[in-house]
Amino acid sequence: MRQDLNYGKDYKFVPVTSVGSGIGIELLPDLFCHTIQIVNICLVGYPESDEFVLVDAGMPKSANEIISVIEDRFGPNCRPKAIILTHGHFDHVGGLIELVKHWEVPVYAHQLELPFLTGQKSYPEPDATVEGGLVSKISPTFPNEPINLGSSVQTLPSDGTIPHMSGFRWIHTPGHSPGHVSLFRESDGALIAGDAFTTVKQEYMYKVFTQELEISGPPRYLTTDWEAAKQSVIKLEALKPKVAVTGHGLPMSGEVLTTSLKKLVNEFDQIAVPDYGKYVN
């Protein structure tokens, strides 16, 4: 068991939730998403198979829930081949250290996220002044110090392939974080977008709680490069995905996804970019 791994000193349970918390959705026979409070994890692989991966690791203190969801789908005492991170913000690595110790599996992330995953560098402070509602206002209470995964975290292969995710490739989609990646499978148009875009207005507590379906940009209070974020959405829309799981909000598919993504690209500055905030411009 690895004892050299640790969270930042500000790591703690974050008491926000939604009506979708605890609910899982099978989007494709080998693509399942599950909501933990306000964030989604993804399981890629066929049920009862031992060839599967976990994408992202939920909210702080969620490791037991993640293990339970995985064992329900893949069988008792199973373990993923790897954990793939879209990025390292607190709500995507919340159960990570317990999971790595429990399963002893590798974690993969983009090279540019590694400083935030090896204890070297904190993310910028969340912006409470950004245009938005209550979630934005309380965002400075969210953990932003780096976790330290030591040698358990590895860089995603530079050729775009993803270990143990045959058919998927990773796409660098920065803006929300420097090394943010999205995962795409050409054969069926499946997209795991992370926080490159969302399907809920993540800044507003009421909308987060009700999970009202609405295309939006990355969560504003943690997005520091809006021009890069816009280019990332343009890149993803060009792939013409047929089904998408985002880090926050309900999955989208078919014509709703196509028209929503097109609208987000065409109106990114109005829909996604806040009117004010310390990371705007």
Rank of each mutant, 00 (worst) to 15 (best):
K263S: 12
M165D: 02
A244N: 04
V153F: 06
R220D: 02
V153M: 08
P219H: 02
G254Y: 10
Y221T: 00
R169F: 01
I215H: 05
G160A: 10
T246L: 05
P143A: 08
V130G: 01
W170V: 01
W170Y: 14
A244G: 05
G189I: 08
H164D: 06
L236D: 02
K240I: 02
F197S: 00
G179L: 09
I162N: 01
G189C: 13
H172A: 06
P146E: 08
G254S: 13
Q231L: 14
L156F: 06
E237G: 02
G194L: 08
S253F: 13
A193G: 14
V153I: 14
P157F: 12
V256G: 02
P143Q: 01
M205A: 15
F197L: 02
P219M: 01
A228G: 04
L264M: 10
A193T: 00
F168M: 03
L213F: 02
V153S: 07
D188P: 08
A228I: 04
L257E: 13
N148E: 01
S253I: 03
G160R: 13
V130D: 01
S177N: 07
I171L: 15
E227V: 14
Q202T: 11
R185S: 13
T246F: 06
A229Y: 12
V265I: 03
M165G: 01
N266G: 11
S182H: 12
T210N: 10
I192C: 00
L213M: 06
P218M: 07
K242E: 12
T259E: 14
T223D: 04
K263H: 13
P178W: 02
E267N: 14
K240E: 15
I192M: 00
N266F: 08
S177G: 14
I138E: 03
G217Q: 04
F168W: 10
V153Q: 08
D159N: 15
E131D: 09
W226V: 09
D195I: 01
P241R: 09
P157E: 11
P140K: 06
L239S: 04
P241F: 06
S151M: 12
V233N: 07
W226N: 11
E203W: 07
V233C: 14
V256Y: 08
S166V: 11
P143F: 01
G160H: 11
E214Y: 07
L222P: 00
S152I: 03
W170Q: 04
P218E: 06
Q154P: 00
K137D: 07
L149G: 04
T199P: 03
S151K: 15
S139Y: 02
Q231R: 15
S253H: 15
N144F: 12
K230P: 04
L183I: 14
L257Q: 10
T258G: 00
T224Y: 05
Y204R: 06
A238M: 02
E212Y: 11
R220Y: 03
E131S: 11
E203T: 13
I171Q: 00
